[in-house]
Structures are given as structure tokens and as C-alpha cells.
Write a protein that binds this DNA or RNA. Structure first.
Lengths: 250, 250
DNA sequence: CAGTGGTCTAGACCACGTC
DNA sequence: ACGTGGTCTAGACCACTGG
């Protein structure tokens, strides 16, 4: 390594554990530890970074709360992967009115390559008219259409994505992002509006044109809050609803 | 005190710091430390509960992440109050399309005493037809009506709440709950649907009848996730939108 | 059984706020 | 100057997992 990982030359005023946290993050980003990997034990890491176990644990604690690492007692600490069942639908917020979350049945409706409009470019942090892949999915719940997803991702990040791969995947899109393109979704932000169903959306969802739908605008973010996806979801809330995560005083 | 707070007789398998956390919680719930109070220093608390400072800190850490306590370096640790400016609108999720949060101008539209229907009773954990206070507010943003709030609270928890007090308050409703009734809102859960504006809502919001509105169903929770409020918000999203909190992989 | 993370101790020293 | 929370150490022992 070019620069020592030992804690010589840390900026003054920065807590050691934050510096250690950043160094662990660097290793993950560099790809030395990949999603699903076990990372070295806390004892080894403490030696490697030249800090006490308590400090090393504090750094790992922070990464665990940010969902970059997962601890399993007796086994080790792992880099988060989307393949674990508990994560697979953690970003899917459409539930039955009784609160039950059904797994959606996904149908690809459209796939194309488009140029970013100014809104998409600013939301994704790209130059205007940057190339995007655009995927439109229809999600059925309980056998009936409930959600239309319009998904835009930078073509540069997902070189080689094709209609066939988007259609034939056996996993969620975010699992595909991670497994095939090394892109990990860590966070999303979402904003919700109520809109009237336009003609095409209404026909896909089998509701009258003009019916009220939720429009959810989602950005999916990776390391350093880098935006990697912009998604518009149109949701019929006749039998389902959008569940906001519990909010605590903050 | 009837039972010693020292850690004799802790259930086996329960970490000490969780026991300490529960004991601190008990003191707050008992009202010995009220919202806004400084609690004793970490050194004193460690002595009082017979644990090391590290363990005491871990208990306080947990209560801080649950927003029951607030630490301020050099000053002390405080019981959370809703009066701090950073908390005042933390449960208000209606923002301008550009992401700016304006403080709402609130007008009381109706105040009455009603019996809980079966839905409200189950959401609030009450018996059917338990007495409720019902408050209807109109919220203006940028001078124009944007939100109708219909708020239901158990009459038993808010004895003495009157139309005048609901109208004349100089603070948010949650500050009123805490200051006048000792009820602290710690968390909310929210579910969102899209609905057509009915006649009365449409006229209050000055939108055409049948226009799409967000309907947000919120429960406000206190200690032990006890429900203390059920609220229906009808939101016109022409110029504003509902902002879901950022969601992380979980 | 060995190795992992989880808990806990008993200090030390630092950074910050208040007086 | 003093008291507060914030960081950090260098261990010990416990609980869980896997071979």
C-alpha cells in the first residue's frame, strides 16, 4: 500500500475511530472485501490499524448502523449483500391495507436507452442529456396489477445491461445491480405526490383514467450518497398502501 | 425506593447495560426527571447503578438513539423536550417541490368529542366507542391551504382539553401534549394512500372535487410504543409533496 | 474445541461550556 | 478552574458458532 494505514498523521480533531471507519470503508470500496465476504476479526483489524479493540469496535459499530457491515456472533463480520432474504424487499414499501407485505410478481413492460432530461440529470448528478437505461416494470400483487415502476439508471454505471437481462433476472433489481455491476444500494430517499392516472398508466393498472394514484419519486444511493437510480412508482392504493418507515424524533 | 437499583438479581442472560437502560427509563417515566431536566452526570449515575462508566454510557447511548435523552458536551445530558427548535417540525413531512420546509399556518376548523369507531379504537388500543377528542385543522403553506389534519386522541389521556386551548396554543400540538398533559411523542408510523377529494375537503383546500389528494394515516407513539394519537392528513400535492424519511437497508 | 463477536471494567486524557 | 460529556486503552470474561 502506498500510504500506511497506521494512525500516523491523522488530522487533528478527528476522532481515531472515525479515521478507522474511513479506512475500512476504503478497503470495501477498493473491492478488497466484496459483498458477502467475511472481514478479518476485530482483534486482527485492531492490530492492523494500530488501535485498541474498543476503538476498532466503535468504527465497526458505525458501519453496522450504516448497513455496510453485518455482525454475526460466533461467526464473524461480513460485508452487506442484498442476497439475504431479510434484505430482498427492504426497499419495497407497498403493503396490503392489513399491513402484510406480499412479494410482487414483476413483468417487464419496456426497456430502452434514453437521454437524461434536466430533472433526471440533476437528480442523478449527471450532465444534461447523459445516456440512461430506462426500465418500465409492472408489479402484480395478489395476481392483480398494483404498481408501475419507471426506472432510470446511468448507462455508464451499467454497461452491458440489456432488455434480456432486465427481463430474465431471477432476483430483485438491486441484487442484479450488486451481483452483475458491483453497485450496492445502501439508502433511498423518497417523495410522494398524488396524481391522476394518465391513459397508459390507467390501462396497465386496470383502473379508470383519472383515478388517484400515488407517485413515488425515489433516488437510490450508494457509497458517499452517490445517486445510482431514479425511479418513479405509480401505485394504485385501492387494496394496497405505501408504508413510510417509522419516524423518530430527530 | 422499594427495590434496590443496584444490579443484584438481574435476569441471567440480560446484558447489564440493558438493565441500566430500563432503570433510567423507569426514572423518566416515573417523572423524577422531566422533559428539559438535566440528569445526573455519567459518573454519578455509574456509581448509583453500580456499573462502570463504559456500561453506563452504553445504556445512555441507547436512550439517545431512541431520542429519549440528549447529550450536550460540556453541559450534561437532558431529557428530550419538544420545545427545541430542531424538534418542533420534525414530524411535519410536507415540503415544497424544491425540498424547502415552510412552517405551516394552522387554523382550527372543528373541535368535538366523539366515540371511537372500531378502526380508531384498534389503532389506538382502546375499547370500542371509547371517548375521543377530535380536532380538525387547516394548514396553510405560503398563504394557501395545503393540508387538512383530522386528529383523534383518547379523551382519557387529555382530560381538560378544550376547543379554546386547541385554538389558542402558541406552540405545536405535540409541544402542547407534552407541556400540558405530560404526554411525549417519541415516534410515529405513517401509511399513505391516494384518494379523491370529497366535497368538504375540496372546498377547504380550494381544489376541484375529485382531485387526487394524499391521505396520510399517522399514529403517534409514546413510551413502550403506546399509541396516543391517530391522525388523517389530506394533502394537496400541486405545489408541495410528502417526504418520506431516508430509508437504509435494514 | 478454537475462534468469533458481545459485554464489562477501571481507569486516563481531551474538548467543551460555564462561571 | 471546574465539571461535563467524548475518546481511548488494555485487558478479562462470556456466549455463540462451527468443525
Amino acid at each position: 500500500m502506498a500510504v500506511s494505514e497506521l494512525s500516523i498523521g491523522v488530522a487533528p480533531g478527528v476522532p481515531l475511530y472515525q479515521d478507522v471507519k474511513r479506512k475500512i470503508l476504503d478497503v470495501v470500496r477498493r473491492g478488497d472485501w466484496k459483498p458477502g465476504d467475511t472481514i478479518p476479526s476485530e482483534k486482527r483489524l485492531a492490530e492492523r490499524f494500530g488501535v485498541s479493540i474498543g476503538t476498532l469496535r466503535k468504527a465497526v459499530d458505525a458501519l453496522v448502523t450504516e448497513n455496510l457491515l453485518v455482525r454475526r456472533q460466533g461467526r464473524g463480520t461480513f460485508v452487506t449483500t442484498h442476497d439475504e432474504s431479510r434484505y430482498v424487499y427492504s426497499f419495497f414499501h407497498v403493503l396490503r391495507h392489513d399491513g402484510f407485505k406480499e412479494p410482487p410478481e414483476v413483468q417487464l413492460v419496456a426497456f430502452d436507452r434514453v437521454k437524461a432530461d434536466s430533472y433526471a440529470a440533476s437528480m442523478l448528478g449527471l450532465d444534461a442529456s447523459a445516456p440512461l437505461f430506462r426500465v418500465v416494470n409492472l408489479l402484480k400483487l395478489g395476481g392483480k396489477p398494483v404498481v408501475i415502476d419507471e426506472i432510470c439508471v446511468p448507462a455508464g454505471l451499467f454497461r452491458g445491461l440489456t432488455e434480456k437481462r432486465a427481463r430474465d433476472r431471477k432476483v430483485t433489481l438491486y441484487q442484479l445491480y450488486q451481483a452483475d455491476f458491483g453497485v450496492t444500494v445502501l439508502r433511498t430517499d423518497e417523495r410522494v405526490r398524488a396524481v391522476k392516472a394518465d391513459a397508459t398508466t390507467a390501462s396497465l393498472l386496470a383502473v379508470p383514467r383519472g383515478d388517484p394514484l400515488l407517485k413515488v419519486i425515489r433516488r437510490a444511493l450508494s457509497f458517499n450518497d452517490k445517486p445510482i437510480e431514479l425511479r418513479f412508482s405509480y401505485i394504485s392504493t385501492e387494496r394496497y398502501e405505501y408504508n413510510s418507515e417509522p419516524v423518530a424524533l430527530s
